[in-house]
């Protein structure tokens, strides 16, 4: 890799990270009629990074996003931060595993990401509260993860279709 493409790669990744931080920060202010449900818009950028680069870059972008966004919001090392971190770690890991082992397209991967994000969060809530009964929320979160996952997956697909000139393998 020569220095020009290295710079190009670095700036692309930085821009993807910046956009994902922006979406992460502005997401709570979006009005969603159902309490506790969010679209997970920042995940679009994670998926785009995964398909443009590889799993390593997706891990970096997602982790840095949670760290920097929490730092900017002033909630770092608070409850919300650990929930985000657990969700993002588990979902990113499962996206990589499912991409390697199954033939899920970007939409399926997005739904999987949302599902495992919820699972990771619930596990941490159970651990923090010392009761496994918070699992009660999991079915509700999973039911909402399917439509939101499809929405973010479709958005990521549409973006990738336009920016990857030679097309990308779904």
């Amino acid at each position: 890799m020569n220095s020009k493409s290295k710079t190009r790669r670095l700036s692309l990744l930085t821009m993807l990270l910046a956009m994902s931080i922006l979406l992460h920060m502005m997401e709570p202010s979006l009005p969603i009629p159902i309490p506790g449900v969010k679209l997970g818009l920042a995940n679009i950028l994670g998926l785009i990074t995964f398909f443009m680069f590889s799993y390593k870059e997706m891990f970096n972008v997602n982790l840095m996003r949670v760290l920097i966004a929490s730092l900017l919001r002033g909630i770092i090392f608070g409850t919300g931060f650990w929930l985000s971190l657990a969700g993002v770690l588990l979902s990113t890991l499962m996206v990589v595993v499912l991409r390697k082992t199954t033939r899920l397209s970007i939409i399926g991967l997005s739904v999987a990401s949302a599902t495992f994000h919820c699972l990771g969060q619930i596990l941490v809530i159970c651990f923090l509260n010392g009761t496994w009964l918070m699992v009660y929320w999991l079915p509700i979160m999973w039911l909402s993860a399917v439509p939101t996952g499809i929405i973010t997956g479709t958005l990521a697909h549409q973006v990738l279709r336009r920016i990857m000139k030679g097309g990308y393998s779904v």
Binding site: L104, S105, W142
Partner: peptide, 15 residues
């Protein structure tokens, strides 16, 4: 695709 639909089905049934 088909595996997406199967996966979504699994998630819904699990929920």
């Amino acid at each position: 695709n088909r595996s997406d639909k199967i996966f979504i089905g699994i998630v819904l049934i699990a929920a």
